Computed example of a mutant assay.
Amino acid sequence: MKNYSDTLLDEIKLLAKFPETSQLEGLKIHKEADPSIIKAAQSLFDKGLISQQDGGYLTDSGLETADHLHHLLIALH
């Protein structure tokens, strides 16, 4: 069985919070947020999935990835 890191799971949870239908709506991660959320946002930014280190908007790649994630979540629900 593959073992997934807590960081990866935090990234998935954060990515799922982004609006799935628009690149005009985003998220802002505040400095007071849980460190794991701040780390997840930085990682998503480093991967080119969001526009800012503290959230921002989904990039084109982020929008596509979030769309896949939402389909997966619907299938598993």
Results as ranks from 00 to 15, higher is better:
26 G>W: 00
18 F>M: 04
55 G>C: 04
46 D>W: 02
39 K>Y: 10
66 A>S: 13
25 E>M: 04
19 P>M: 04
40 A>D: 05
55 G>H: 05
45 F>M: 07
77 H>G: 14
62 G>K: 14
48 G>C: 14
31 K>D: 09
2 K>Y: 13
60 D>M: 12
25 E>N: 07
15 L>N: 08
24 L>N: 11
49 L>G: 07
27 L>Q: 07
66 A>D: 07
22 S>Q: 03
29 I>T: 01
7 T>P: 01
22 S>C: 02
37 I>E: 11
1 M>L: 06
50 I>L: 10
50 I>K: 10
27 L>K: 09
16 A>D: 10
18 F>P: 03
13 K>T: 01
70 H>N: 09
41 A>S: 15
49 L>C: 08
5 S>M: 09
57 Y>S: 03
52 Q>D: 04
48 G>F: 12
59 T>N: 04
3 N>S: 15
64 E>P: 00
63 L>I: 03
60 D>F: 14
32 E>S: 14
40 A>M: 12
9 L>I: 14
74 I>W: 04
76 L>S: 11
64 E>S: 12
5 S>D: 11
8 L>T: 09
22 S>K: 08
18 F>H: 05
32 E>Y: 10
20 E>P: 02
42 Q>R: 11
36 S>D: 11
34 D>S: 11
32 E>W: 06
44 L>N: 13
24 L>M: 04
31 K>C: 03
46 D>N: 15
36 S>Q: 12
63 L>S: 11
53 Q>M: 01
66 A>K: 14
7 T>W: 02
3 N>D: 14
21 T>P: 00
35 P>F: 02
72 L>F: 14
54 D>P: 01
